[in-house]
């Protein structure tokens, strides 16, 4: 295991006095690839906000390695797609530069290389709304990576995208992790994304379980996380999570009509 980047120590956060996360404890170390998995409204985004420092903690402490640099990729649903920004505009937004100066030509070349590596090299003059879902995600990933972060943080990277785009994003993140990037993401998609990650933190207001998918994707943990009974099957050595058959209203209705 690499050096510790972030440690949550009994952290709680609230919005307007209403507690959202409670007594949260987990760590993220160098070269980790961690997914925080839980249902909508379970406080996953609040964990990220408190980590990034945009939301103050109510109690507890978040220890960050000194000079830790974050690259943050927000949910695509939160993006204003009508904003007049080309791919180049979005990516260069996060690049700090001396006042009254244009971007350094060396940096422009580096950004061009990064866009090429992410497969969006020829799109720098295109408006962000004109791109496919996968390309849009790559643009925001490029904006985060251009800051050369120590920890890449993604909020629901697979939210609101089709299956092909989800695969595309997962492979891209796996490649980045392979190249040495530390990654922390949130997702509510267990089978499509979470089950493929090396480490999961099952979360609902607090940490329910923390470990590799084969260990934490267990019916008991999932029921505590999602508040509904779930079955776990093994398929090709990977866990596949199914909603408990007896709790599927659609099946019951189909069964009654036959």
């Amino acid at each position: 295991m690499g050096k510790q980047l972030v440690r949550f120590e009994h952290v709680g956060c609230s919005y307007g006095g209403v507690p959202v996360i409670d007594d949260v404890e987990f760590t993220v170390s160098e070269h980790d690839f961690v997914g925080i998995v839980g249902p909508s409204g379970s406080g996953k985004t609040t964990v990220l906000r408190s980590l990034l420092g945009t939301l103050p903690v109510t109690y507890g402490q978040i220890h960050r390695r000194p000079d830790l640099r974050f690259g943050f990729v927000p949910q695509v649903e939160a993006v204003d797609w009508s904003f007049p920004a080309t791919v180049r505009d979005v990516v260069t937004m996060s690049v700090d530069r001396p006042r009254f100066r244009r971007l350094d030509p060396t940096l422009i070349t580096e950004i061009g290389d990064l866009l090429d590596r992410l497969g969006i090299g020829g799109l720098s003059g295109r408006h962000i709304r004109e791109l496919s879902g996968g390309q849009q995600q790559r643009v925001f990933l490029a904006r985060a990576l251009v800051q050369q972060p120590d920890l890449l943080v993604l909020d629901e990277p697979a939210g609101g995208v089709d299956v092909a785009t989800r695969h595309e994003i997962l492979h891209l993140l796996a490649d980045l992790h392979q190249a040495g990037m530390s990654i922390l993401l949130t997702t509510h998609d267990i089978n499509g994304l979470a089950a493929h990650l090396p480490r999961l933190v099952c979360f609902n207001r607090t940490v329910i379980a923390d470990g590799p998918p084969t260990q934490v994707l267990h019916p008991y943990v999932l029921e505590r996380t999602y508040g509904a009974p779930m079955d776990v099957l093994q398929h090709g050595g990977m866990p596949v999570v199914l909603e408990h058959r007896e709790h599927r209203p659609a099946q019951r209705i189909a069964g009654e009509s036959s």
Binding site: R49, F72, P74, F83, A85, S94, Q147
Partner: peptide, 13 residues
Amino acid sequence: TFATFDPEVAEVS
């Protein structure tokens, strides 16, 4: 521009 387009990420950056 950054604070107009995406204030939260701008703050983080």
